[in-house]
Design a protein around this nucleic acid. Structure first.
Lengths: 187, 187
DNA sequence: GTCTATATGCGGATAGAC
DNA sequence: GTCTATCCGCATATAGAC
């Protein structure tokens, strides 16, 4: 009873905290001690919840994918005018990447783990698949499918590049201008 | 005499090898043992050439910056027709990123070291400054300076995002299409 | 579920012989 | 310049008491 009243389980809380820390510090540079301390649990107790660090990252990535599906990508498929959906999706993406520092954990994880831990690749691919599909869906209302897909790819690449430059120069504008361009594909 | 006949010093060779390994494996996941072994020197001997791992990465990044200045960005300022310069710079960038796996060491290093090792930020910034300046120079022949700069930023972001997706999907096309778009800004 | 203690190995770095 | 030996600290992970 009291357990169900809690919004998130302890395990979920660890995943949330870890997402934030991995994004800022990177995967390999983050120790179990860092994570445990931030979560207010003892180092050894971490292994009560997760088999190892890799399994934690996996849960982090699938969680992020679910959040984006549920909160952002879904906005593209609503029964609303095109421009409204486009505006909502832009606002949601802006919100999430400006709120937390460290950029995009999906892109970061590609670069850190592609060589040694290819098991994360499919999860990260599914994230970018869903993102590009959502934008393609929107752009298809004005362009041929092939053109819409190309513009969606360009938009995602532009935004991800913008996130890197935002972090490098500590300047939001690279990211914000990319978002604006993604919207201006339509109007 | 025999020393001067060698094209690269041992120290330079280590830097070259390390650039390739850092790019593929990442900075933190790469050990001194990895680097030494790949260079055919003994682990302890590494410290004869470099104070520590951070100083090695610094030399790697400044070396990459110099190479891009000398081999790529300079192409934008030649006494040649605009389209020719644009084509040469595209070919040079394509060449370098397709030849070696692991993507862009500059972008990778931002994500890995921005939080703990901000000392690398200025070097990486100077790299992207030079790249965007070269493209802005080209685009200014057809657009107003402010527009040219915005298009240069977009092109660089698009290409960097494309490099990430190229690695994620093991598919050159994301990167190649971004390069093509950077050229089509002009013609 | 939570803590103490600890095993174990690896990575960065140094000292010093040759 | 190159190698041997070694120190130290940290990080992952486990065993087991409470």
């Amino acid at each position: 009873m009291t357990e169900k009243a809690q919004k998130y389980s302890k395990k979920e809380q660890i995943v949330w905290k870890s997402i934030g820390i991995f994004r800022k510090q990177g995967y390999f540079k983050t120790s179990i001690a860092d994570l445990s301390e931030a979560c207010g649990i003892h180092k050894a107790h971490f292994y009560y919840y997760f088999k190892d660090k890799e399994h934690l990252l996996e849960e982090c990535l699938t969680t992020v994918k679910k959040i984006f599906d549920k909160k952002i990508f879904i906005l593209a498929y609503q029964e609303k005018p095109l421009k409204e959906r486009l505006h909502e999706i832009e606002a949601a993406i802006k919100n999430i990447f400006l709120k937390y520092e460290g950029g995009c954990i999906m892109a970061n994880s590609v670069l850190e783990t592609a060589h040694y831990n290819p098991q994360f690749i499919p999860i990260i691919q599914s994230f970018f698949d869903a993102w590009m599909q959502a934008l393609t869906h929107l752009y298809t209302e004005k362009y041929q499918p092939a053109t819409a897909l190309a513009k969606a790819e360009q938009a995602v690449q532009d935004i991800e590049g913008g996130i890197i430059l935002m972090r490098l120069y500590k300047d939001d504008r690279f990211f914000l201008k990319a978002l604006k361009r993604a919207k201006q594909v339509i109007y």
